[in-house]
Structure formats: C-alpha cells, structure tokens
Amino acid sequence: MDFGFILNNAPLLMEGAAMTVALAIGALLGATIGGGVVAGLRMSRHAPLRCVGAGFVEIMRNTPILVQIFVLYFGLPTLGVHMSAFTSAVLAMSLQNSAYIGEIYRAGLESIHPRQREAALALGMMPGMALRVILLPQALRRVLPPLGNQFIIIIKDTSVASTIAVAELTQASKLLLDRSAAPYETFATVALIYLAISAGVAGVLKLAEWRYPVRVS
C-alpha cells in the first residue's frame, strides 16, 4: 500500500475531480432543463409534438452513451460541425438524460389528479400559472427520489468522457496508473472521490425531500 504516491499526485487528482464536477454541472443543468422540454413535448396537446417527444426519448434511451458521445465528437466533424471533447461529452449526457428526466417529470405530473388543475382554473388561473403554482410544485416533490437517482447516474457517467481524453477524474487515474504500479491505491482513491461527490448531491436531495415533503389531501 502506497498512499504517499497518491498524496504526491493529489493536484492531478484534484484537477480531474474539478473537471468531473464541471462535466456533471453542465450535464445536470442541460438535462434538468432539457427534461422540461421533453416532458412538454410528450404531454403536448398537439399530436405531432407528442410524436417528436416520444421519438427523441426512444432514440436517446436505446443507444449507449458512449456511442452518442462518439457520434458527436467523431461523427459530426465529417458534417463540418466541430466541438471540443468537453462540449461533446456535456451535450451527449444532457441529451440522453433529458429523455430520462423528461419521463420522470411526466410521471410526476401525470400522478397529480386532474381535479387539482381544475381547482386552479376555477380560481381564475391561466393554464400556465396552474402548472407553475399548483401542479409542478406537487409533481416535483413526488419525483425527488427518482430525480436523485438520475443525478447520481449523471455524475458517474461523466467517467465516459475519459474515452475522448477529457481530463476528468477517471482520465487522471489512468495517467497515474501509467506513472506507477499502484492500481489498487489509485482506483480506490478515485472511487472514494466519486463517492464523495455523489453522496454530496444525494445529501442535498435528501435535504430537499425533508424541506419539501409530499403531502396528499
């Protein structure tokens, strides 16, 4: 066991961890917002929009994230579209997780009884206000647990970006491995760092669940 080696290379790991966090923040934001768009399409009054939403979900969830990243990073340049490895990774993860999170939002909204919307409309609210003030606050509370799952999956999936040489945590650990013969210490440390980041996000969500409990009447 040689953790002195790890300590000596702490800056490399910390930079990798910072990049992992940056990827995760980008993908979390993209997917949280994109999920709203997907849910909006899936629940639209207009059939063509519902079809677009359903098609997007099926394509995104039925192809591997690694392939999606490769399509963006290696495939698009042949069409003249170039983007950095970081952008490709964030975009691919945002798109795929928009599909998952959109379905989570939809499940939450559809679990709210139509009478809630009716009561809001009867009080003179416009449909958009009823959604914002009455339906979404209830739906989001109900979906905090699956949303937390998905957030953690996103954090862990950022490791896939190492395949296109984004200098994130997993990539850093591979570099360390080349410099030493300490695979156990290296990957154990990296696992702990992932655990810390994920546990932090999970903790925030637990806090949110406590602060915004689900109530039924």
């Binding site: 009080l123 003179g124 009455i134 009447s217």
Partner: peptide, 30 residues
C-alpha cells in the same frame, strides 16, 4: 372564472399549501 367561485365535491384543496396559503394564492397570483 375569477369572478365565479366554485366548490367541488372532493374539496380539491392544494395539498402542498397550508390552509391560509390555499386562500391567498389565487387573489395574490390572479
């Protein structure tokens, strides 16, 4: 609708708001 009140068979109160907020939400927002 803002001028016409309605009371439903199943009450349809907003479960995420307390009693006072159930009363104030529409006048404030609408």
């Amino acid at each position: 609708r803002a001028q016409v009140g309605m009371v439903f068979q199943h009450y349809n109160l907003f479960p995420h708001l307390d009693v006072l907020e159930n009363l104030t939400v529409a006048p404030c927002r609408v």
